[in-house]
Design a protein around this nucleic acid. Structure first.
Lengths: 405, 405
DNA sequence: AAAATTTAATTTTCTCGGTGAAATAATTGT
DNA sequence: ACAATTATTTCACCGAGAAAATTAAATTTT
């Protein structure tokens, strides 16, 4: 077992082909060599040799009994599929009060989840890495696994992060700025570890497994306490020049508008983030307990005019902001991802109207909008998707190295 | 002389290396084979063979007298440079009252310009192509050239255009919607002709020859009658899924705000476009003649408070809108391109302040902002840049085909 | 049931772009 | 003139991918 946790660099031509074949199999679920060749527009010979390598590496396997559905003449196709048992990865999300952990197999299927509570919501880098270690060990223990079985760990974190170098410019979870986490990970964690912005990871998950499968240009907008975004352009995650783009939550939608937690005014987040809506809906009222978004939804359903107004305004503002994204990026698809509590019907209706009314008018139809009501674990699941991708690259490079040795 | 005007498709590996070498030479101005090999991280042998092909095709040439500056021991390097005389391209911009033409050599240097007046600002597709033909012939005549000498024509047009297929969804210059210009070009024009959005072409020019040279992520914002944008991401022009993105001018900056020429409210353009500023500065006044932006600038300098306010507000709004772009794209660089009349000092100051105050705070410095005061011909020049790129691709593919024949 | 047919996958042979090593070219320094 | 140095070219080779031929595994026909 190697101990080199270098970030996966560019692949040579051969490994790139193997990766393409692997991704083709992954996105198809089960597919024959012939169909892979057709899908990738390459020769059967190339596919065969790539599959030999992937089979030897244990990353894929042949389906044993094709249920002989549509029986054809000729030699039957052998279906290939991802070998889920090949390895396991851990995906984690640093939230305010806990680290959320999901362990997934190589297929992306959940093996189990775990919530590791945090004493404070802000920590030093060292403390954070220790907490990650603790979370990993506890999750493995709870799932009856050994940490050795984890082939890679992907960590999602709010803030400005350069995912390629594991360098964090700033995060609300960390007391320091400008921290290079790579050496800390190497020192304290038993497996290759990758860091990225949390919304980027959700986008990656949608790209690999979700609504963005196979798409080249799409956006994932996360709406929770704050508002985040992941951008996939030309089939790749777009991170910006310094890893601090995609700050949809801080797009200014009103001059001198509502105060945002970032200290500026008029940010989208200051209108549609959970904290902002709670603030607006309960300002100046006698409130006996801490209120949440759920209380607003309940109040609105119960006929509370102010609550209804707050929801309505938020929907409208979000719709206009999304229209801005459509006008700028012209994406194929937008995924609105939210954990608890889910988007409501009236919410979506107002939103879609505002969207339609504020996009530039073309004959072509609007991009599709998918609303995803998930649970908190969507963040950790996003991280597993990224982890699987990273570990795959390591594996391919690793196998290549073995050949050479 | 071939007559196949097929759009340049993807290149094979060999032509791709030749193209990389050519671009390396172009961006360096003059460079030796050894340095090219180093810059492209490839072997000297590869560079040699690519250069042989490029020299044979006449696209580059060896510099005759290296002025023996820093004399070194050993065999002196032979400097290679683009052969400007290799070919000429025409760049055109469809403006409201004229087609602006620039003829440039293969180096990108201007051979000459020409303005071909238009009777109407909106035409049928056929009429437009005829006008283009007329403009080409007239420009060539004026510059003492034959249209046969033009290796390619690139046409910039406002509106939603798919640059890869020459399909126009909509343009303010054309009376019809959803027109495929490719067959019209083939029918009526004597050389390969390419269509794209005008702002995209300015971005291309900045990328090849201007402030964006060598950059991977940058934006070009054009501010004139309307507001446009070209986006370069990962070193390539980003056009969106359907070719109707980058509509920065129609980003909503105010709910229910000022009326835009697109019919919607609150668009950036409705605050900072020329027409909007003129409208704001002279509404409700006794005006004796048609006013222009220049009149506002003059009035403001002369102490006119309303004019000053209009300028100030436009600067501030543009600054906030640019901050949104920075927050979303995190670019290396933003070019503000404008022809007549130039940005003023106070304009830029207010703008930069608004920009600073509305970008997400990171330790990393803001992207650089270049203000470009150009003349009307910047649009046509942008088109020549694109034309050069397209014709280069044709040439490379063409030479390959000749080899085969 | 054997042979023919059909489709899938593998093996073989070949092509071609790129590379390293060796050769050649064009200088300066002694 | 000759050695040293650096740039470029030539040449033999490698390796990834492709076309063609072969083998494999089924069904259909006879």
């Amino acid at each position: 077992m190697t101990t080199e946790f270098a970030p996966p660099g560019p692949l040579d031509a051969r490994d790139a082909t193997r990766l393409r074949v692997l991704q083709c199999i992954r996105s198809a679920g089960a597919i024959s060599r012939t169909d892979i060749a057709q899908a990738l527009d390459s020769s059967p010979a190339t596919v065969t040799s790539a599959c030999v390598a992937l089979l030897e590496a244990g990353l894929i396997r042949e389906e044993q009994r094709p249920p002989s559905e549509n029986v054809q003449r000729g030699r039957p196709r052998v279906m290939l599929q991802i070998n889920g048992d090949a390895l396991a990865v851990a995906g984690m999300k640093v939230a305010r009060d806990a680290i959320l952990v999901m362990i997934a197999d190589f297929k992306g299927d959940e093996i189990g989840t775990y919530v590791s509570p945090l004493a404070q919501s802000r920590m030093s880098p060292d403390q954070l890495v220790q907490e990650v270690r603790r979370a990993l060990d506890a999750a493995c223990a709870a799932l009856d696994m050994s940490p050795d079985q984890i082939a890679g760990l992907s960590l999602g974190m709010p803030g400005f992060v350069n995912g390629e170098s594991s360098f964090m410019h700033w995060s609300s979870s960390v007391t320091e700025r400008n921290v290079n986490f790579a050496p800390l990970f190497r020192r304290d964690l038993p497996c290759p570890t990758f860091l990225d912005n949390d919304a980027n990871l959700v986008a990656k998950a949608e790209h690999l497994f979700g609504a963005g499968k196979g798409l080249r240009n799409f956006l994932v907008v996360t709406i929770e306490h704050g508002v985040g975004m992941g951008i996939v352009l030309n089939g790749e995650l777009y991170r910006g020049e310094r890893g601090c783009g995609a700050e949809f939550g801080h797009m200014k939608v009103q001059f001198g508008g509502a105060l945002c937690q970032c200290g500026q005014r008029g940010c989208l987040e200051a209108y549609v983030g959970d904290y902002a809506m709670v603030r607006d809906a309960f300002t100046g009222r006698q409130v006996d307990a801490a209120k949440t978004i759920q209380d607003i939804l309940d109040a609105a359903r119960g006929g509370d005019t102010l609550a209804q107004e707050v929801l309505d305004r938020a929907s409208q503002i979000l719709g206009v902001a999304l229209a801005n994204l459509v006008n700028l990026f012209d994406p194929e698809h937008i995924v609105l991802a939210r954990s608890r509590p889910p988007f409501d019907h009236p919410y979506s209706e107002t939103l879609l109207n505002a969207l339609r009314q504020n996009t530039v008018q073309v004959d072509a139809p609007l991009p599709e909008i998918t609303v995803r009501n998930l649970n908190e674990m969507m963040w950790a699941k996003g991280a597993t998707a990224h982890g699987i991708e990273m570990v795959t690259l390591l594996k391919l490079r690793g196998e290549g190295a073995e050949d050479a040795a």
